[in-house]
Write a protein that binds this DNA or RNA. Sequence first.
RNA 1: GAGCCCGUAGCUCAGUCGGUAGAGCACGUGACUUUUAAUCAUGGGGUCGCGGGUUCGAGUCCCGCCGGGCUCACCA
Length: 497
Amino acid sequence: MSESGASGQDDRRAKLEQLRAIGVDPWPARFAGRQPIAAILPRVEEQPSPVVRVAGRIAARRDMGAALCFFDLVDQDGRVQVMVRKDVGEQGHAIAKKLIQLGDIVGFEGTFARSKSGEPTVFATRVEFLAKSLREPPEKRHGVTDIELRYRWRHLDLMSHPEVRANFVLRSRVIQGLRELLTAKGFLEVETPMLHPIAGGAAARPFTTHHNTLDMDLYLRIAPELYLKRLLVGGFEQVFEIGRVFRNEGISPRHNPEFTMMELYWAYVDYRAVMDLTEELFVTLAQRHLKDGTTTLGERTIDLRGPYRRATYHDLVGEHAKVDPHDEAAMRRRAAELGLKEVAKAPGFKVLEALFEECVEPTLVQPTFVTHYPTAISPLSKPVPGKPDLVERFEFFMNGWELANAFSELNDPIDQLARFEAQVATKDPEAPSEVDYDYVRALENAMPPAGGLGIGIDRLCMVLSGSLSIRDTILFPLRRPQEGAPGAAPDAAAPAS
RNA sequence: GAGCCCGUAGCUCAGUCGGUAGAGCACGUGACUUUUAAUCAUGGGGUCGCGGGUUCGAGUCCCGCCGGGCUCACCA
């Protein structure tokens, strides 16, 4: 018996030794001239039959007597049947009949034509062992379906589910598409620090870390915002960054502690131009990646064809909470009716915010721009002229999820300093603990008026792929380590039997 | 952090009223020269998540813990 996690008599290490005994390298370095399966499939009717070289994972085998054997071979984008007879040579035949197991990576050369039953088939003339699998692959019909195993050992999930691979191909193309669209509009892609001395640009608890040589505590960034806006001061007029941000908060179907954000800053325009750009980006991506411009999330169908609804924050609270959003006493009564006890003693803007989250957000199923947020919850936004309590800001919602956040950027250094100081004074654990004077100093050198935008890439991919869990758009979502689990212990070092 | 639900072979899953463990796939051996969820015969494989309790007897009932899922909280 093996201690490698294999069961019963599935001792792959014994097959490995047999391969070595007949002089076959179980892990050779290359398979020259390999053709993708998807590329050969259209050639099945060619006369004379083409000679092909294909390689991939053994997904099924069907033995027919002592001489004949069929394999199903799977590579990244295709699947094809391979037939092995005695004409592969004595050693090739011995390898195929006795030493190839499900999950092994094998290369075949042969002529490509239809079998007697019409199945496109590589009639093998050469067998090359390419990589021995020392563990059994997932069950061939269902694959790994246990959710815990799927995320913990994503390679098994990807191996057995082409549709999961397709989801991540989609993600890559969405990000690439965003890059191309923004670059075509004159935006410059930049990279700013992930290690921040002060965690700013959003309200969230940061991860902390430490630099030894400088003996300095640092934070993993919660947003790139304050660095990107320094670039506007420096003279760049259109910049964007696509990258990871880190927030030390709970895990849920819509939250992962590290996630990917796209932020852009655009000089000389305000939040209205940014809203038009956001709509254009979403409509374009929906056109490219959704069959009819709509997506299905659970029971809901969401139409991304645009144009999207635009409504003000206060109007929506009035509409859905059925209360005058300018009457604080009425809102407190309404919040109490709804059982929102935690805001009883909170300031007025918190009551309004609670009503928005409770009554409005769940109704924002179809794409909606929510505009004109309270200044009190928008410390980096420029106020609406003549209305100091409101800012030129929007958030973009669908399916009740926040997908984007944007505003006319506050570039008044005096106002910005006052707002930072007010934030620090709240002692809120999610607010910065100290004022970012360096950023204020940058604003003192004059930042042009500008609009900024942040899009949550993971949630965008959820929408475009119809996923209800953010973990289906993140290859390796954060997990608690599992003690004693296969892979957690160095059991690969266990001796062969 | 709270509530509800889940954890049985490598994988996918059964397991009745509490009576000492089952199937399919995978794996070993054998048969079969056109199969394709191949088929047929046969064999091996289990710390029933972990620990405690109740009981003559626990996969099953109770308690605690670990891990996971969902909901809530948190999350501009």
